Computed example of a mutant assay.
Amino acid sequence: MPKSFPNAQTIPVGVAVRRTPGVTRWAKHAWRVSAVLPGAGAADWKLLRTEGDVAEFHAATLPLTLYVSDAEAYAHELQTRDPSIYIILRQNEAASDFPWKVAVVTASPYEAQDYCDSSEELVEKIPMPEGLHAWVLEFVENFYEEEAFVKRRRKNMNVDQVEDGIGDPRIRQVSDVYRAPRRKVALN
């Protein structure tokens, strides 16, 4: 059930992570976010299924919060070919069988880009499920107002009567017609 605040709405979203065998001798396993589960209950690396060496876990459930101030970002994401949810994973510092922990779930491509600038997090892009897409779309329709483009106009100024600024003041010549005039300083 989504929670509503004056400037935000929140829904819990579960994150499913798939573990596959590594392809090099240096990486025992490869980890990828495989799905998001809107409205999921709490979980801490709960095993969902296994197929041979591949295992899928419900890694965590975090709140997905939509803010009115970020409505433009959500609108841009909904206009893409494949609207997505972004999951940010951080390395797990604690000694554990799971090297990643789910840090953030967001629908904002701008916020995800900020996390991409750092090499410490892993940013995963997952297609937005239909129900979540409808929820984000309703939020954008309710709160996003596109700003009208207003072209600035120059002030009407008559600049053809003054020759200030013509010439290069770095060139020292006695009679340079194009050099900017200098003000003489009176010595006391």
Rank of each mutant, 00 (worst) to 15 (best):
W26I: 08
Y178R: 00
M128G: 02
K151A: 15
R154E: 15
A30F: 04
V140E: 01
A73Q: 03
D53E: 15
R90W: 06
R32E: 15
A42R: 10
D44H: 14
A103I: 03
P83N: 12
W26Q: 08
M157L: 15
I11Q: 00
D168L: 06
P12N: 07
Q9T: 11
V174E: 15
D70Q: 12
T80E: 09
E163N: 14
S84G: 07
G52D: 09
A16R: 04
P38H: 07
L48S: 04
W31G: 04
H133D: 02
L137W: 00
Y115W: 14
M128E: 01
A186W: 03
S119F: 12
T24P: 05
Y86E: 04
E145I: 08
A95D: 15
S175L: 05
V159C: 08
E121Q: 07
D168P: 01
C116N: 09
I88Q: 07
V177Y: 01
M1W: 07
S119G: 15
Y67C: 04
Q91E: 15
V23E: 12
T10N: 04
V159K: 11
R32Q: 13
E121L: 01
R81I: 07
L64F: 00
L48F: 03
L137K: 09
G14Q: 00
S4V: 08
K184M: 13
T50I: 14
S118R: 08
V162H: 10
T10V: 13
I11A: 05
S175Y: 05
E111K: 11
R172M: 15
P129T: 11
N156R: 12
M157G: 07
V15Q: 00
D164Y: 10
V123H: 06
G167P: 02
S34D: 09
R18A: 09
A71K: 00
K184V: 15
A8K: 04
W31K: 01
M157K: 10
T20S: 11
A55E: 14
R32N: 14
T20Y: 00
A55L: 08
P12T: 03
D114H: 15
H76L: 11
G165D: 09
A59F: 01
V140T: 08
V54D: 09
V185P: 02
V54Q: 09
R81C: 04
K151L: 13
R154D: 14
P2N: 10
E51I: 06
A71I: 04
P83K: 09
A55R: 12
D168E: 08
Q91H: 13
R179D: 05
E146V: 05
S118I: 00
R81F: 03
V68N: 09
R90L: 10
F98W: 12
L187P: 07
H76I: 05
L47P: 02
A103H: 13
Y86W: 09
V33N: 00
L37S: 12
N142L: 07
P63W: 03
